[in-house]
Design a protein around this nucleic acid. Structure first.
Lengths: 347, 347
DNA sequence: CTGAAAGCGCTTACAG
DNA sequence: CTGAAAGCGCTTACAG
């Protein structure tokens, strides 16, 4: 059987829509882009054609004319695998939607940070997204600022006032979780802190202390164990907390990795979660649903943050190209308390 | 200070390169795309200009002319978070490079699978990538085939001969790991199998048995514990294996999630890894390096598989558009044995 | 409010 | 081997 020539795979263009609706391509374009200066009658006709033909705009064509194809850099260090993965996913998703190109550069030390920034600049990026913990590095931010490039800092606990940022309210997140534990009836709550040099860790710890104080509960120093956001540090911290007598009835871990570690320790000591011990995390990384029992945690919409970070850089890039000074924005995303099986009332 | 008009952000185009090198844009294009029909002298001049100007092709422009902007669908179910994330990352990476658009559809039951496929078709995708375990579903493959859409099956243990596929050799991967354990001196090796309905799980189990037999070692039935690739199933399986007397000196888990579970159980029983017990996984997901000790495992280049899956669909799409029947390809990627801290000689 | 023209950056034919 | 022309799909000015 000879291969058949399939002309059918040629996609529907805006010209097809225009012809079908009996209008000019321009009018079709206006309707598709939600431009209000179109007579309702025409708008309806075009929308009907779009639906009927199953039209989907070709983004390459669009971006060629609009953004002129922006290039976005991502500068990261210390990849907390799950978190960064998810963020990059959002970034790629959105940039593929807008036809922007993304270049990702990793750096470890300060030296390599200079060269990574350099590489991005040489690659001609129009703006840079900076995930944590680099988002809090005055060094990194300063260096990008020098090149007069737009920046978006992601998930900083204390974003530089002059730098556009996106993140959740870490303080309120930890308040919510602490209140949830109190609401379950817990009074002896252990806390595993995150890397003290990261601003979100600082906020989460402060929020825990403040909320406990607000409830009239004293937090003995040994109830707060130092951690570094790593699984390994969680192992040591959880061990310390669970050796206390009396033992805390709940452990609030500053992230999911450390909560996973706490779970392993509890398991090892024969403590059943959640009937004998409640363990909760923060972030809602994939780890939270891999574990068993699944983790109660605070969900950060990391993917959406990635998407919006792209939108924010692109806005800045466009402003600049139009010769305007881009306004600094601080976007706060909503977090959610996700209740799963690792939490319950105290024994 | 009035905002300054920065004309500088206008990117360098192929026209700039051509002018700089004193050739036509066509010649520049040929050099940039590695077309061999160019005099070495011209080639060198163009390459020098590219370097000097820091030229980077605008992908929107390119894809507008070449692929005509292909749309790629991804149809998945049962998201083993880490694996899928990584795959999608690769897919988005490559498609953003080629200017292709990606649409991702999730489905759970068979019903929802029909509608998900339907949605992709209606969205006008030109080809579909199918990650595991759907890649082994005759149902899913058949349904896409009916629509005469190109398919790429990812990580199937037994790819349909008529369907283009990409994956590693799961059998050889498990052989390698088993030999590694034997080489360390282990003889009593426990094995946690994966979901028996997934073809890669079948191959890994078979390879383990065969390699043991080849070494003249009998595998008592109780040394092979059934699992489902989930953490939870790993918990139960590991517990069973470690209660045996005599206990295995090593446990080979069919994926990293189950290895993480085994690690938690070992930890709980006070068994030090790796001095008292060796635990190894398969896949090298982010989990493998989150744990402590970090996991010895077989690395699947999932990200690269995502990238190449895009290349494979695009090839098929192009062939079809040219009226040719696309050749079926089965691409096998290299796996790697990654030795970390969870493995050592038997006690 | 609507449309005809031009062009974003690149590459596919088509000539030489 | 090299290049002049045309066009991919869309939207930005510019006219009406």
């Amino acid at each position: 059987m000879p291969p058949r020539r399939r002309k059918s795979s040629t996609a529907i263009t805006i010209l097809d829509v225009a012809r079908h609706a009996g209008v000019s391509p321009m009018t079709a374009s206006r309707v598709i882009n939600g431009n209000p200066r179109v007579t309702p009658a025409l708008r309806d006709r075009v929308q009907a054609s779009v639906r009927e033909l199953g039209y989907r705009p070709n983004l390459a064509g669009r971006s060629l004319r609009t953004t002129g194809t922006a290039r976005i850099g991502v500068l990261y260090s210390n990849p907390s695998a799950a978190y960064l993965n998810e963020l990059v996913l959002g970034i790629l998703e959105q940039s593929s939607l807008t036809g922007a190109q993304v270049q990702i550069e990793k750096c470890s030390g300060i030296r390599s940070q200079r060269t990574a920034t350099q590489r991005l600049v040489e690659a001609g990026v129009d703006g840079i997204i900076v995930p944590p913990p680099l988002c809090d590095s005055a060094q990194a931010i300063g260096e990008i600022g020098e090149r007069r490039l737009p920046i978006v800092a992601v998930a900083s606990g204390a974003p530089h006032p002059a730098v556009t940022s996106i993140g959740i309210d870490d303080y309120q997140g930890a308040v919510t979780m602490t209140r949830f534990l109190l609401g379950l009836g817990h009074r002896r709550i252990g806390f595993i802190a995150g890397d003290p040099s990261h601003t979100p860790a600082q906020l989460r710890t402060a929020a825990f202390r403040d909320t406990m104080a607000e409830a009239g509960l004293e937090v003995p120093p040994e109830h707060v164990a130092g951690g570094l956001f790593t699984y390994r540090s969680g192992l040591a911290a959880a061990e310390k907390l669970l050796r206390l007598d009396p033992r805390p009835t709940a452990i609030f871990c500053s992230n999911d990795d450390m909560a996973a570690a706490a779970m392993a320790i509890a398991h090892g000591m024969g403590l059943h979660v959640p009937t004998q011990l409640t363990i909760v995390g923060f972030d809602d990384t994939p780890m939270a649903t891999t574990l068993w029992p699944e983790l109660t945690t605070i969900r950060q919409p990391v993917r959406a943050m990635g998407r919006d970070a792209v939108t924010l850089v692109l806005e800045q890039v466009r402003e600049r190209r139009n010769g305007r000074a881009a306004a600094v924005k601080h976007q706060t995303m909503k977090f959610t308390l996700v209740k799963r099986e690792s939490s319950g009332p105290p024994p």
